[in-house]
Design a protein around this nucleic acid. Structure first.
Lengths: 242, 242
DNA sequence: TTAATAGTGTCTTTGAGACATTATACT
DNA sequence: AGTATAATGTCTCAAAGACACTATTAA
């Protein structure tokens, strides 16, 4: 342990970086920006920036989120993901990145922020083949895995929709994030059986779905913060996986 | 977003702080130190210290852990918990604390590190009434809650024991961490039915338990990293809890 | 001998999943 | 009409929980 000396602490900078996920065109997509400043100018990266004096880590993440997506999102879910601080991950100096994970409903086209020349939604499946700046590929992968796990135990799938929503819309969120087809009938009964997951609004859709069928009832998020029992992924033997 | 300027970034320091949990005297206990240096000199706090140049966040946490507990613990589980960076949480300057969570088997008495005058194990139940420095009370509470949740979905209960262990010892870990009695027979069958949770060593204990009973078989941790299906807490209706 | 414990067997209940059915609405 | 969908019903299987039972060991 080093004795504290307020004049000689090692120089460190702290950034808040974001893994913003949404469902677009039947795909899970993450928000990426093209960097306008060095290092890695011209390359794709997660949106983010330095934490400013006087703001909390969460406030910094929320500020970056509104800058990049166009503000005004009370409905966006935002939680801390993890921190990344390997020496050398930023060529300039020691930088600790506190990553946040956001779930957003489908948004209008993204806005490049101050330091970015471009902002776009990249399908989660394409991230493996994209070159991202810093260690952002790993951060994005961690965020996507966290999102998949969170849908099992929390009602956060609703954060990808704009209430009121139908059970079918909720199912499409699950199918898109997990990349697996779910059984419509069983899913329907299951969602309604979990206390506090969704609440009926009493209304129903104006018309049936595009290819026919009856009109469906509309729901809004319920008070539950955890799902009991959880909605487990189908192929999840998982026991022996790393 | 502030344009980067390597000479004018706001001064920030980064610490690695630890929530080290163990099971002692049939209680879940966390490691605390009494601070020898200001600020908060003389008060209780979580062990930790500044991240040094050239070391990863995890290496910093592992270093603090061995300094405080006496080294040589390949068997201790160490994972990142979360980061805490509210302005003003440290009176000296902006300090970001990257907290790590550790699960340890019962250890000899703790060693105070360089900056500490005392190190001791405090029962988790007593933390609510103790005054901890900085925002360490909240960090400790977050760590304990994470530990309780992790026992449900991971085989990490074994990290609180020293292999080989008996099923009864594993059950005592669960009962202590969750603070609830479990049904011995059902727990036994359940643990053995989860693939990869534990593996028999072939050996058994030298004698029966203190108050009688047959000798029990000994096990070691299996290859699983997740429990499928999970071992859910009994009283966990939880759906509507925050 | 008494009591406590390890390990197993059995029964009931609950929930997941496969499949079927009915009513509704789009083409 | 033909087809797709919302919502519900039925059946089967797996797992959790309550309880019982046997064998083994300490006091």
């Amino acid at each position: 342990v080093t004795t504290y000396d307020s004049g000689s602490y090692p120089p460190v900078a702290v950034t808040a970086d974001l893994v913003v996920l949404t469902v677009r065109d039947d795909e899970l997509a993450a928000l990426l920006v093209r960097r306008g400043e060095p290092p890695f100018a011209g390359e794709l990266a997660l949106p983010g920036g330095f934490v400013q004096p006087g703001e909390t880590l969460r406030e910094a993440a929320a500020r970056e989120l509104t800058e990049e997506t166009g503000a005004g999102f009370g409905s966006v879910h935002l939680e801390q993901l993890a921190s990344y601080g390997d020496p050398g991950r930023d060529p300039r100096m020691r930088v600790i990145s506190v990553a946040y994970l956001a779930f957003a409903p489908e948004l209008p086209e993204a806005q490049p922020g101050t330091d970015a020349t471009e902002a776009k939604w990249a399908p989660a499946g394409s991230l493996g083949s994209l070159q991202l700046a810093f260690d952002h590929a790993r951060i994005a992968a961690d965020g996507i895995e966290r999102a998949r796990a969170k849908l099992e135990y929390t009602p956060l799938a609703a954060a990808f929709t704009r209430p009121p929503f139908t059970i079918a819309e909720l199912r499409e969120v699950y199918e898109t994030v997990w990349g697996e087809k779910l059984h419509a009938g069983n899913f329907h009964r299951k969602v309604l059986s979990v206390p506090g997951f969704v609440e009926p609004t009493g209304a129903q859709t104006q018309s049936g779905s595009a290819r026919g069928g009856p009109r469906s009832r509309l729901y809004q998020p319920g008070p539950a913060t955890q799902l009991h029992p959880p909605l487990l992924r189908p192929g999840a033997e998982g026991s022996l996986r790393a």
